[in-house]
Design a protein around this nucleic acid. Structure first.
Length: 885
RNA sequence: GGGCUCAUAGCUCAGUUGGUUAGAGCGUCACGUUGACAUCGUGAAGGUCAGGGGUUCGAGUCCCUUUGGGCCCACCA
C-alpha cells in the first residue's frame, strides 16, 4: 500500500489535480451526435469582480450539475466568460487613473478605452483563476467576454433588428440619472430604498392683483425636493377638490424666481396627500412631465447632468443640488413662505453602482419597446416550457413582465458597445447600421456622425445564451447546445438578466434560452446581513479554500443551502465539509489497507453484482453486511439522483453524507473487520466517490487515484441503481442486528460497564426473523458490542443475576454474577417501562375514541392496534424481568 | 400600497402528498489510546414545532388571524 497520511490535506492535492484536469481536455465539450447535450451558460461575473461567497455558491451549484451530467454521459458544456460591466469598469479604471493624476476627459475617448483594455488585460482574468480554485469545470477554451468581437457583433445585430422592427426608438423622457456616474440608468439600475426624508410645505402667493381677500394669501404645496421648485411651471389640484375648485385658472407667483404660474386641474393629483396642491416641475419629475404634456407646459431644466443647479436656477447656479435645497429653504424661511416641515418616509432611487441618489431627469435617450417582446416570454413561463425552481419565482417573474416598461438602453459613458446609430449633418436623419453607412438613408448626405452613447451592459448580457455559441452566425454549437438546459442564478438579477434573456431568446432565435431556472438564495452573514465590502462582513472564499479546502467550502455551503432560502454563513460552518473530506480519506485508507493489491480486486467493475449475464462471483459468499450495504447503496444512488433531478442539492448531500458516514463507515466498515467480501467493500466506496464527485471533486479524485492510478473520476460513469440489490428483508434483519448491538452498548453506558470488562450476552429471539438475523449477525454482534461470548437461544431462560433489555424482537440478558446493583437495574427498567406505558396510553386513547374508529381508514386502525399489542407485550416482559430481579 | 419569505432542541437548520413516540450538524454531559479517522468512536440529556382560532378521526404539515424578523416590487409630490 502507498504511504497515505492519516489526514487529508487539500493543499497537497487541489492544485495538482486541477491542472491535470485542465490538461486532460475533459472540460471540453463538442457537439456529438451520439450524446445528448447538457448546457449551462455561466452568469458572467464582472471583469472587475473578485470571487465572493455569492459566486462560490452560484458556481458550485453549476459545477455540480455539469459534473453530474458529464458522468451521466451527456455532452456537458459549461460556457464561461465575463461581463464588461460598463459603468462599474469605467468607474474602476477612472479611479486608478485618478491615482496617477489622470482623468478620463483629459485622456479623451480613444485613449481611455485603450486604458480600459489594458486594465482588462492585467486584471480581467482574476475571477477566472479564482473560479478554477473552486474546481469549476468550465470549458475554458470557450471563455467569452461581452466586448469580444463576436459578442459585439451580436449586440449590433440585435440592435439593428429591433430598430428595423420598430422596437427601438429615441425620445425625450424623464429617466433615472446618476449625477456621479453622469449617465442614464434603467429602472432596474435605480433600485428604490426607503429614506427618512422631509416633506416641506411652501406657500406660493397669489399674483398681487388677484389676491382675493377670502381665499388667503396663496396656495400651499408640499414637496420633498424643494430645490426643484425653481423649475416649477404650474401648481396642480384635483378638479374635484372643493377647496381649490374656484382657484383653477388663477395665477400664482413662484417664490424666489418671482415667475407667474397657473393653477391647473389634473386628475393625477391626490386630494388626500399633502395639501392637495402639487407643484409641477416637468423637467424633474416623471408625473409632472406627463402632466406638462397634457397642459402644454414647457419643461425647464434647473439642474445639469452633474447634479449642480444650472443657469436657469438664477443665483443658485453652480450649487450642488443638496446645497441648493438648503439655500432655497433658507430663503423661503426668510420670506416666511416655509409653512411647515413634516417627517416623511419615502422611497428614493439610488444608483446601483455608486449608490448616489438618482435624479429624475429629462433627457434624450434610446429605448426598447418591451411589451411586444414580453408576450412570448410570458407565454413560455405560463405554459410551463420554462420552469422556475423554486416555483414561487414564477409569480414574481410574471408580475414584472405583465407590468413591464420600456427599457432605456443608452448610457452616457465610454466603455461599452457604441450605438450603431448615425446622424446626418445635412438633414439630422437617423441611419441605423451595423457598419458605418456611406450615406444618410434619408437624404443621401455623406457627412455622418455616430451616436456618442454606448449601450446598457445588460444589452449584451441578454444575448449571452446564444451569442456565446456563435450567434448571429449559424454555428454547429448553436444548433447543438442551444437551448441551454439550466440557468443557475441569484434572485437579484431576475429582471436584469433572466427575464430579458427569455425575451431575447424568443425574439432572436425563436426558442426559449433554457428550460429550467434555478434561483438560489442570497449569501448573508450570520446575523442575516448581506455580505458586502462596506459592511466589512465578508467571508473571503479564497481564505476558506486555504484554510479548509475547496471541497470543504463547496460541501459546506451547499449543505446549508436549502431550496432558494438565503444562506447564513459563518466561518465555523466550513468544518462540516472539512471533516467529511477527512472521513472519506480515512475510510479509503482503511479499505486500501485491507486489500491485497495482488488480487486485482480493484479492477472488478461495478456490474459484477448485477444479476445480468455478466455476473461474476465475488471471492466469497456475500455476508449479510455485504448484502445490506449493497441494498443501502442502491437506494442511495436512486435517492441522490432523484434529488439532483429536482435541484435539491442539500438533500442529495445529506443523503450521501448519511450513507457514507453512518451506513458505510460506522456500520459496514466496522462489520467488515470481522469479515466481508472485499469486492463489495471497494465497490461501495467507489460508487460513493462517484456520487460525491460533483460535490467534492478534489478529494474524490485524490482517493480515486489512490485506489488505483487511472483516468479521472470525472469521466467515470454515474452509478445506476440496481433494484434487484435493494433487499427489504436484509435491511430489516440488519435493523435487528444493530438493535442488539445498540442495546448492549446502552447497557454498558447506563450501568458503567467499561469496554475492557469482558461480558457475555444471551439473546432470546421472539420470532423466526429475529432468530435468523441474530444468527447471521452473531460475529458482528460479538465484535461491535465487545462481547466475550454470545448465546442465541429462543428458549433460554433469564439468568439469575443479569442486566436486561427488551424490544419487540428479542429479550437480551447480560449475566453479571454478583456485581449488579439490583436497585439501579430495577429503576432503569422501570423507566423504560414507563416510557412504553405512556406510549400505550396514547394509543389506547385513540383506539377507545369512537370517532377515530369510525373514521380512520382500516389500515391505520389496524396498525395502531398492532402497535398497541406489541408495546403491551414488551411491558409485560419488562414486568417479568423486574419481578425476577 | 401590493407580493414573497422566515419563526421547529442552547445555536444553525431539515421535515416530501396531513397518519408510529418530530430529525441532523454544532454545542453540552459521560465514557473511550479495539491496528481508517480525536477533523474520531460509543452513549445520554435537550423541543407544549412563535401566539390564537378553524377544518379533520388525526395538524409541525391545510385554512384564517395576531405578533415579530428579512426581502422584493410600486411615478402620491
Amino acid at each position: 500500500m502507498k504511504d497515505i497520511p492519516p489526514r487529508y490535506n487539500p493543499k497537497d492535492h487541489e492544485e495538482a489535480i486541477y491542472s491535470k484536469w485542465e490538461k486532460s481536455g475533459f472540460f471540453r465539450a463538442e457537439p456529438d451526435a451520439d450524446k445528448k447535450p447538457f448546457t449551462i451558460v455561466i452568469p458572467p461575473p464582472n471583469v472587475t469582480g473578485i470571487l465572493h461567497m455569492g459566486h462560490a455558491l452560484n458556481n458550485t451549484l453549476q459545477d455540480i450539475l455539469i459534473r453530474w451530467k458529464r458522468m451521466q454521459g451527456f455532452a456537458s458544456l459549461w460556457v464561461p466568460g465575463t461581463d464588461h460591466a460598463g459603468i462599474a469598469t469605467q468607474n474602476v479604471v477612472e479611479r486608478s487613473l485618478r491615482e496617477k493624476g489622470l482623468t478620463r476627459q483629459g485622456l479623451g475617448r480613444e485613449k481611455f478605452i485603450e486604458e480600459v483594455w489594458k486594465w482588462r488585460e492585467k486584471y480581467g482574468s482574476t475571477i477566472i483563476s479564482q473560479l478554477k480554485r473552486l474546481g469549476a469545470s468550465c470549458d475554458w477554451e470557450r471563455t467569452r467576454f461581452t466586448m469580444d468581437k463576436g459578442l459585439s457583433e451580436a449586440v449590433l445585430e440585435a440592435f439593428v433588428r429591433l430598430y428595423n422592427k420598430g422596437l427601438i426608438y429615441r425620445g425625450n423622457y424623464i429617466i433615472n440619472w446618476c449625477p456621479r456616474c453622469q449617465t442614464a440608468l434603467s429602472d432596474e439600475e435605480a433600485p428604490h430604498q426607503d429614506v427618512e426624508g422631509k416633506l416641506y410645505y411652501i406657500l406660493y402667493p397669489f399674483k398681487e392683483e388677484q389676491g382675493v381677500g377670502n381665499a388667503g394669501q396663496g396656495v400651499v404645496v408640499a414637496t420633498t425636493r424643494p430645490e426643484t421648485m425653481l423649475g416649477d411651471m404650474a401648481v396642480a389640484v384635483n378638479p374635484k377638490d372643493k377647496r381649490y375648485k374656484k382657484l383653477i385658472g388663477m395665477k400664482l407667483i413662484l417664490p424666489i424666481m418671482e415667475r407667474e404660474i397657473d393653477i391647473i386641474a389634473d386628475d393625477f393629483v391626490d386630494k388626500k396627500f399633502g395639501t392637495g396642491a402639487v407643484k409641477v416641475t416637468p423637467a424633474h419629475d416623471p408625473n409632472d412631465f406627463e402632466m406638462s404634456k397634457r397642459h402644454s407646459l414647457e419643461p425647464v431644466k434647473v439642474m445639469g447632468p452633474d447634479g449642480k443647479m444650472n443657469e436657469n436656477a438664477g443665483r443658485f447656479n453652480g450649487m450642488d443640488r443638496f446645497e441648493a435645497r438648503k439655500a432655497v429653504l433658507a430663503e423661503l424661511e426668510e420670506k416666511k413662505l416655509l409653512v411647515k416641515i413634516d417627517k416623511h418616509e419615502h422611497a428614493v432611487g439610488h444608483c446601483y453602482r455608486c449608490h448616489t441618489v438618482v435624479e429624475p431627469y429629462l433627457s434624450l435617450q434610446w429605448f426598447v419597446k418591451m411589451k411586444p417582446l414580453a408576450e412570448a416570454a410570458i407565454e413560455a413561463v405560463k405554459s410551463g416550457e420554462i420552469k422556475f425552481y423554486p416555483k414561487r419565482w414564477t409569480k414574481v417573474y410574471l408580475n414584472w413582465m405583465e407590468n413591464i416598461r420600456d427599457w432605456c438602453v443608452s448610457r452616457q459613458i465610454w466603455w461599452g458597445h457604441r450605438l450603431p446609430v448615425y446622424y446626418c449633418a445635412a438633414c439630422d436623419g437617423v441611419t441605423v447600421s451595423k457598419i458605418k453607412p456611406e450615406k444618410c438613408v434619408k437624404c443621401g448626405g455623406l457627412e455622418l456622425k455616430q451616436d456618442e452613447d454606448v449601450l446598457d451592459t445588460w444589452f449584451s448580457s441578454w444575448l449571452w445564451p446564444f451569442s456565446t455559441l456563435g450567434w448571429p452566425g449559424k454555428t454547429k454549437d448553436l444548433e447543438y447546445f442551444y437551448p441551454t438546459s439550466a440557468l443557475v442564478t441569484a434572485p437579484e438579477i431576475l429582471f436584469f438578466w433572466v427575464a430579458r434573456m427569455i425575451m431575447s431568446g424568443e425574439e432572436f432565435i425563436k426558442k426559449i434560452p433554457f428550460s429550467d431556472v434555478y434561483i438560489h438564495g442570497t449569501v448573508r452573514d450570520a446575523s442575516g446581513k448581506k455580505m458586502s465590502k462596506s459592511l466589512g462582513n465578508i467571508i473571503d472564499p479564497l481564505e476558506i479554500i486555504d484554510a479548509f479546502g475547496s471541497d470543504a467550502l463547496r460541501f459546506s455551503i451547499i449543505s446549508i443551502t436549502s431550496a432558494g432560502q438565503d444562506v447564513f454563513l459563518s466561518k465555523d460552518k466550513f468544518e462540516i465539509g472539512r471533516n467529511f473530506a477527512n472521513k472519506i480519506w480515512n475510510a479509503s485508507r482503511f479499505v486500501l489497507m485491507n486489500i491485497d493489491q495482488n488480487d486485482n480486486i480493484v479492477r472488478v467493475r461495478p456490474n459484477i453484482f448485477s444479476t445480468s449475464s455478466k455476473y461474476i462471483r465475488p471471492s466469497r459468499e456475500l455476508s449479510i453486511a455485504d448484502k445490506w450495504i449493497l441494498s443501502r447503496l442502491n437506494r442511495t444512488i436512486e435517492a441522490v439522483t432523484k434529488a439532483l433531478k429536482n435541484y435539491k442539492f442539500n438533500e442529495a448531500e445529506s443523503i450521501l453524507y448519511d450513507f457514507i458516514w453512518h451506513d458505510y463507515c460506522d456500520w459496514y466498515v466496522e462489520m467488515s473487520k470481522s469479515g466481508c467480501a472485499k469486492e463489495v467493500l471497494i465497490h461501495a466506496l467507489e460508487d460513493s466517490l462517484k456520487l460525491l464527485h460533483p460535490f467534492m471533486p478534489f478529494v474524490t479524485e485524490a482517493v480515486w487515484q489512490n485506489i488505483k492510478e487511472r483516468e479521472s473520476i470525472m469521466t467515470a460513469s454515474w452509478p445506476e441503481p440496481d433494484k434487484k440489490l435493494v433487499d427489504k428483508k436484509i435491511e430489516l434483519d440488519m435493523e435487528i442486528i444493530k438493535d442488539i448491538i445498540v442495546n448492549i452498548r446502552n447497557i454498558r453506558s447506563d450501568m458503567n460497564i467499561p469496554y475492557s470488562k469482558k461480558i457475555t450476552a444471551i439473546v432470546v429471539p421472539l420470532k423466526k426473523s429475529a432468530e435468523r438475523a441474530a444468527a447471521a449477525g452473531a460475529g458482528y454482534i460479538k465484535n461491535l458490542a465487545q462481547l466475550d461470548g454470545l448465546t442465541i437461544d429462543k428458549k433460554a431462560a433469564k439468568p439469575k443475576s443479569s442486566l436486561s433489555a427488551v424490544t419487540e424482537n428479542f429479550s437480551l440478558f447480560i449475566p453479571l454474577e454478583g456485581i449488579i446493583d439490583i436497585a439501579a437495574e430495577k429503576a432503569r427498567l422501570a423507566k423504560k417501562q414507563d416510557a412504553l406505558k405512556q406510549q400505550t396510553a396514547f394509543i389506547e386513547k385513540k383506539l377507545n375514541d369512537k370517532n377515530f374508529m369510525d373514521h380512520a381508514p382500516e389500515h391505520v386502525v389496524k396498525s395502531e392496534q398492532e402497535r398497541a399489542s406489541k408495546i403491551k407485550e414488551q411491558i409485560d416482559r419488562l414486568e417479568d424481568t423486574i419481578k425476577g430481579l
